[in-house]
Simulated scan of single mutants.
Amino acid sequence: MKAVGYRQSLPIDDPASLEDLSLPEPTPGARDLLVRVKAISVNPVDTKVRKGARPGAADAKVLGWDAAGTVEAVGAAVQGFKPGDRVYYAGSITRPGTNSELHVVDERIAALAPKRLDDAQAAALPLTTITAYELLFDRLRVPKNGGAGQTLLIVGGAGGVGSILIQLARQLTQLRIIATASRAETRAWCLALGAHAVIDHSKPLAGELKAAGIGEVDMVASLTQTGQHYAQIVESLKPQGQLAVIDDMAVFDAMPLKGKAISLHWESMFTRSKFETPDVARQGELLAEVAALVDAGRIRTTANESFGTINAANLRRAHALIESGKAQGKVVLQGF
């Protein structure tokens, strides 16, 4: 089967950083779906793994976690799906990635794809949707239809996670949503997705909030450049506020949170599948819930750019855009 992967960690402008491959077809395990991949999207984790995880000398590592496709076969213990079903999901970080014609995924972390979206539009959603949903409801523990009178600041509102977090918070809670964006087009994007206001993260956040008449906030979802904004985030949070973080930092000092008794929450959507937690099926359930919201017209896809077919050259372009920090919404690729 066709696939795209890498054999050594290289800068993305090196043609060998991602290569077209021919690999054996995978075999589904008892609880697995064998999926013919129709479309994928690219996330920052793809670039981080490519730069930091070196395959063995004779091996090639296939990246990619988001996928939309059609079930070709099911394992002996699968109960919720059948061949021909159209599914979408974000796979496990412990298994080969979705940048391949055929892929196996645990049925518990997959769901039927939204009917009103095409494959590329659906593939944009899973990883960021799971991240945003878990951050909002499992980490910050905002009740469904709750949060009245409270304010959520989303740092990096126009990125992949921010683009779906704005929508989930607007549709499923009563929070006031303040997003950050630094360009006219990303500001407009955040407002169109449902943010009540947008401030500029290229300027001090506390000052921007005060200038907007908002003042301190109850919760911050810091989705990018947390280290750069950390002091301003602490200043912007109310006493006993909450900070949820997803990005990686070489060093993180939690002591500045102590004075205000700010609680810190880490979100990693790979945790449930990596450790096969007792509630691992919750990821498939929440994707099904979001698919219903999409089909009801309440949530829109975050796909914003299509880079063509799934091949090494196009994936190198996508990785380069992600690494630039200028991606708006999600980048998708479709077909082999």
Rank of each mutant, 00 (worst) to 15 (best):
V49L: 10
K115Q: 07
A181N: 07
L168W: 03
I12N: 04
I40A: 11
V104I: 14
I154P: 13
A120N: 04
A188D: 11
V62N: 11
I109D: 09
L243S: 15
Q121I: 03
R108A: 11
G29M: 07
R139Q: 15
D85S: 03
V71P: 15
G69D: 01
P55N: 11
D248E: 09
R50M: 10
D279G: 06
A318Y: 01
R95M: 11
A132M: 03
K144E: 10
V49N: 05
Q225S: 06
Q328V: 15
A195C: 07
K2T: 05
G194H: 14
A3F: 10
A211N: 13
D119I: 10
G160E: 01
Q283D: 14
T129Y: 00
G147A: 07
D248Y: 06
I178S: 10
A192H: 04
D295Q: 01
R36M: 08
V155F: 13
H319D: 00
R187M: 06
P44H: 10
V251F: 10
E216W: 00
V220R: 04
E276H: 01
G97K: 12
I166L: 13
L21H: 12
A206V: 08
Q283M: 14
A169N: 08
L10Q: 05
A148W: 01
F336G: 04
S268R: 15
R298F: 00
K330V: 14
D138I: 00
E216N: 10
G159S: 07
Q240V: 04
V280M: 02
Q242H: 09
I93H: 08
Q283H: 02
V331T: 13
D138Q: 05
V45C: 04
D14G: 01
R316N: 06
R183C: 09
K210V: 13
G259K: 00
A313V: 02
K238W: 03
T271N: 01
A320M: 05
I177V: 15
V198L: 10
A16L: 10
A122N: 12
R116D: 07
A132I: 04
D85F: 06
A111T: 02
V35E: 00
A124C: 07
H319N: 09
A90P: 12
I164F: 08
L102R: 08
N145A: 14
G5R: 01
I233E: 06
L287T: 07
R282P: 00
E185T: 15
E107F: 01
V37L: 14
V142S: 15
P15N: 11
E276N: 13
V245I: 15
G52E: 02
L321P: 00
A231N: 04
R282D: 02
A288S: 15
D106H: 09
E216K: 12
L287V: 11
P143S: 09
A212V: 04
L205H: 08
R31Q: 15
T224N: 11
A195K: 10
A318P: 03
F275C: 12
I262M: 12
R282Q: 08
